[in-house]
């Protein structure tokens, strides 16, 4: 820890002044950071004529709580929510599995081609997504996965960042644990399940947050791969509020606010692991 501890007697007015300044700066920045979210919420409560009214409507005199109901019923959003939950959980679990096994291999085994393979996957991290869109679609289609839940999960079923994270995290864990288990007669799969996975919990929590958020918010891929509206996700549904002759901002924001709640909840649940595991993983180059 880098905090500098002061004993009570040493605390001077400078110390308190410093603290107060820090708190003021943090509060101001927090308000600025929160503002777009507040504005989303306020917009969701406006009537359509208030969205671009001048002088500006800071808070509607007559909040339109009904916007939430109207927006939700405009499209089968309950169905979209179910799809999104299913796809997101599926993607997250698959990513945790594929990234942790690969990260384990890179961290704890020596094998031919290790360096090349690792550089290769780092290179894939830099690919601009727009250009692989069409070839990826062709591939998914040739595998017969268009309009299937698995097809919707595909671009996210593994994470290069995840492999990197897990590898770094595991490198900080002593090999003795693994050797001991091997002496006890565990095979490699058993070691992965019984030793590695429990150890990886904080790192997996971080990866889960990243993957969950990414999958929950992904837009272009589900739009293109879902052939029929029964397979749409929340983000695709939100796009319907934006039309040729206008955007229904108040309804769009209403669904957007609702759609963000699960992600925030997910973050709050796992955030205690957040800093700790990035701390362990990010440092060993």
């Amino acid at each position: 820890m880098t905090e500098v501890k002061h004993s009570g007697s040493q605390r001077s007015w400078e110390y308190y002044l410093g603290r107060i300044t820090v708190i003021i700066v943090l509060v101001l920045l927090a308000l600025i950071t929160l503002f777009p979210f507040i504005w989303m919420f306020v917009t969701a409560l406006k009537s359509s004529s208030e969205v671009f009214k001048w002088p500006i409507v800071l808070f509607p005199a007559n909040p339109q709580w009904g916007n939430f109901v109207e927006a939700w019923n405009r499209q089968p959003f309950t169905r979209f929510l179910q799809n999104t939950i299913f796809i997101t959980i599926g993607t997250t679990l698959l990513t945790l599995f594929t990234s942790s096994t690969a990260g384990f291999a890179f961290a704890k085994y020596e094998f031919r081609g290790k360096r090349i393979l690792f550089i290769l996957i780092l290179l894939l991290l830099m690919l601009p997504p727009q250009v692989t869109l069409v070839p990826t679609y062709l591939m998914v289609r040739s595998l017969g996965l268009v309009n299937s839940y698995f097809g919707l999960m595909i671009p996210g079923i593994t994470s290069v960042f995840g492999v990197f994270l897990i590898r770094q995290y595991l490198q900080s864990i002593p090999n003795e644990l693994i050797d001991a288990a091997r002496i006890d007669g565990s095979n490699d799969w058993g070691i992965y399940l019984q030793i590695i996975l429990p150890l990886l919990k904080p790192a997996l929590a971080v990866l889960a947050i990243f993957t969950f958020t990414g999958s929950w918010n992904s837009f272009l891929w589900p739009l293109i791969i879902a052939d029929s509206s029964t397979m749409y996700t929340l983000q695709v549904g939100i796009a319907f509020f934006s039309g040729q002759t206008g955007t229904e901002y108040q309804l769009m924001m209403a669904v957007a606010v609702v759609s963000m709640l699960p992600v925030i909840l997910m973050y709050l649940m796992f955030q205690r692991y957040f800093v700790a595991s990035v701390a362990l993983s990010g440092m060993n180059y």
Binding site: S99, T101, A102, L124, P135, T136, M139, V160
Partner: peptide, 17 residues
Amino acid sequence: FLLPCFVALILFSFIPF
């Protein structure tokens, strides 16, 4: 151990790349 990750990466990242 690398297989699941690399099957996905090769099919859906590397070949498209």
